[in-house]
Write a protein that binds this DNA or RNA. Sequence first.
DNA 1: CATGACAATTAAAGCGCTTTAATTTCATAT
DNA 2: ATATGAAATTAAAGCGCTTTAATTGTCATG
Lengths: 346, 346
Amino acid sequence: MNDLITINDVARAAQVSTATVSLALNGNPCVKQQTRERIIRIAKELGYSPNRLAQGLARRKSGLIGLAVPDIESLYYGKIVRHIDEAAGQNGYQLTLAISNDNPETERKIIGKFIDQQVEGLIVAPINQPVQQVNYFQELVKTKIPCVFITAYYPQLKAPYVMADLQAGSCVLAEHLLSQGRRHLCFLSGCPEVITTQIRTAGLEEAVRKAAGRQAPKASLRIIACQRLDYAAGYEQACLLLKQNLPVDAIITINDEMALGALNAAISLGFDIPGQLAVAGYDNMIFSSAATVPITTVDQNIDLMCRQAVDMLMTMMKQSGQEANGHPSGIMLEPRLVIRRSTERP
Amino acid sequence: MNDLITINDVARAAQVSTATVSLALNGNPCVKQQTRERIIRIAKELGYSPNRLAQGLARRKSGLIGLAVPDIESLYYGKIVRHIDEAAGQNGYQLTLAISNDNPETERKIIGKFIDQQVEGLIVAPINQPVQQVNYFQELVKTKIPCVFITAYYPQLKAPYVMADLQAGSCVLAEHLLSQGRRHLCFLSGCPEVITTQIRTAGLEEAVRKAAGRQAPKASLRIIACQRLDYAAGYEQACLLLKQNLPVDAIITINDEMALGALNAAISLGFDIPGQLAVAGYDNMIFSSAATVPITTVDQNIDLMCRQAVDMLMTMMKQSGQEANGHPSGIMLEPRLVIRRSTERP
DNA sequence: CATGACAATTAAAGCGCTTTAATTTCATAT
DNA sequence: ATATGAAATTAAAGCGCTTTAATTGTCATG
């Protein structure tokens, strides 16, 4: 916030008005080619760059889009942030990030902060929480600030979203396991009130149901709701599970971190993977391919997801003010099953 | 950027001038208690919140501090972002994040963007790159925008920094290994031109040198420079190393991701950990404690590091404009060795 | 009752930029 | 030479806020 070069300095140096400088620098064709070039040269010489606050105020556009994530200490959301940042930049927007640390109260405040900051649009990767508590999003949607949800959505909200088709992904994963002869699936899952958990569970159940007619013996699906969803949680929950000597021949987890934890737990308990037990993850994170036993997983195509979300947001921002064209839509991205050794036929 | 409530709306509703509203809302004691309360009530009723762009422009303070990180898809920098964000928020500042993706050119541009955005101060977690190429930071330092480096620093830059004492940490880790009877250490390291790599190496060498007098047989230190520094790289490099049948009885890595990779590689090659081979990481990330064999590591106290960095920056921002008081300083944080099973005495 | 002191409020300028309407410039046609 | 209109430039207002100097109101004091 030091005494930087302003448009006035440039105008004085170039012997023109500030209006001309502004027009020249913004590529307005009314400015004579020769004048423009001189102004640009002088601006560069002086090291001028416009004050975004003033620019934003005058244009009534901040050039900012907000991204809210529940967590930043996981590869998954790290990837989200990176790709949204990249896509936003490519569209000439600066990202402003806020982290809710899985705290709904914080998430609510974040929305307010974004509005203060005059974001032109925002992308929310919502906390994975039971659906009831999100009335503050209602208000957000009412403010008419363009907003798209990513990685999850709230069914009652009628706000556009982009997410992986978790039902299809879970289903195709379970089908793969069943086709390999696994019969007793166990899902290390999250909170059952959370929408994405429900969707994943539905996918698994769908596969089991479909298989019921065709294959014997009958397949079973056990669901364990875990509090935390990280490596350590995967390790601990797998230990607890496997020590019970239940008939389990496949563990499915909610993400690759947990899968790696579960795999390592199983190995230290002396299980033969994949002979005795299959382990599958989700997200196709870098380390899943390099585990002691490479882990089967489902790729979400986060890159594409982020680009779609930003594209969608840009479209909404352009239409903003106009009548919304029909109902806000949602995009579900097709999953890609990545088969590795951890689920090979026993 | 919709037609939000402005200070004018509040002033009109409260039948006072905008000046009074501004003063009241900013806690200026000149405003009568009664008036203030009325204004605050009305502002709340109207859902007013000040436009940060206008506020920033008028105050010549953006309320923004910039954070540049080389990468966001790793737990390490994720933690950094989270804690800096938190500390900044506690000081009433909004964070603006930029990711260089380990690209020096991008990092340079980021600095410019931050300046455009009128950040009042900035924190740079620099790319781990050879020291020569950082002349653009020279310019940054010249702009007199308060700036502190974190996790690494450039010796020639005379800019303040906060980082873990990597030399002490590496040294104490190596001493631990040597004291357990390990003799042939191998360091899965980064690029040798990078300052932090040099510091770490110096720490390890220091320990080996000290041990040379006291203990026989003579200890050795082998250094392998890795390109990437993630889980997969740890896995691959450990495989390559261990297949050579060299006399190696301890692997030290640059971070816990790599350590986990190396551990899993060693296990799949049939090594007995810690009997035959010790594996040690760095950073004390969550998963190091939950590996198949819990991994010895060094805690950097990232939380403290971030708070110190922000505190330091705040101090600099307050003094900004005044004469700098003496030379900019650096803070080295003491390491804490976390001993786990992966390095137990054979 | 004028006076000064003090408290409370406001007018007005300004932050750095954009933008529109008005003005100037200048080549061309008359 | 003069009128005309297009091209180039600029004056000036305004974006939403802060801040300072000026103004108003109040009241005790001489």
